[in-house]
Simulated scan of single mutants.
Amino acid sequence: MAAASAAVTLSIFGFMVVLGLPLMAQGQFLSLLIEPWRPAQGIYGIAPMIVGTIAIAGLSLMVAIPLSLGCAALISGLGRGRLPAFLHRLVRFMTGIPTVVYGFAGIFLLVPLVREWAGQGSGYCILSAGLLLAILIAPTMILFFTDAFAAVPRGYLSAADALGATPAQKLLFILMPCAWRGLVSGVVLATGRAVGDTLIALMVAGNAAAMPEALTDPARTLTAHIALVVAADFDSLEFRTLFACGMILYLCTTLMVILTRRIGAVSDPRRWQGA
Results as ranks from 00 to 15, higher is better:
residue 196 G to T: 01
residue 210 A to I: 13
residue 179 A to P: 03
residue 223 T to C: 02
residue 233 D to L: 10
residue 159 A to Q: 09
residue 259 L to Y: 05
residue 240 R to L: 09
residue 192 G to W: 00
residue 186 G to I: 08
residue 165 A to C: 08
residue 183 L to N: 03
residue 235 D to H: 11
residue 199 L to T: 11
residue 246 G to D: 01
residue 211 M to E: 15
residue 204 V to I: 15
residue 167 P to E: 04
residue 214 A to M: 12
residue 203 M to I: 11
residue 242 L to A: 09
residue 233 D to W: 09
residue 178 C to E: 10
residue 214 A to S: 15
residue 182 G to E: 04
residue 212 P to E: 14
residue 183 L to F: 03
residue 199 L to A: 04
residue 172 L to Q: 11
residue 239 F to A: 15
residue 208 A to W: 07
residue 253 T to A: 12
residue 160 A to L: 02
residue 175 L to M: 13
residue 183 L to H: 07
residue 226 I to Q: 04
residue 220 R to C: 02
residue 167 P to L: 02
residue 172 L to V: 08
residue 234 F to S: 13
residue 190 A to F: 09
residue 226 I to T: 06
residue 161 D to Q: 10
residue 187 V to A: 12
residue 245 C to M: 13
residue 262 R to D: 01
residue 161 D to V: 10
residue 222 L to Q: 03
residue 225 H to A: 10
residue 187 V to H: 09
residue 250 Y to T: 09
residue 190 A to S: 13
residue 228 L to I: 11
residue 182 G to D: 01
residue 264 G to Q: 03
residue 189 L to A: 01
residue 247 M to E: 10
residue 207 N to Y: 06
residue 265 A to D: 13
residue 157 L to D: 02
residue 171 L to C: 05
residue 257 V to G: 11
residue 169 Q to V: 09
residue 202 L to T: 09
residue 206 G to F: 04
residue 250 Y to W: 13
residue 218 P to N: 15
residue 193 R to M: 08
residue 205 A to D: 08
residue 230 V to C: 06
residue 175 L to T: 04
residue 247 M to R: 04
residue 217 D to F: 07
residue 266 V to N: 03
residue 229 V to A: 07
residue 237 L to C: 01
residue 266 V to K: 02
residue 248 I to T: 07
residue 236 S to L: 08
residue 249 L to D: 03
residue 238 E to T: 10
residue 155 G to I: 14
residue 266 V to W: 02
residue 210 A to P: 00
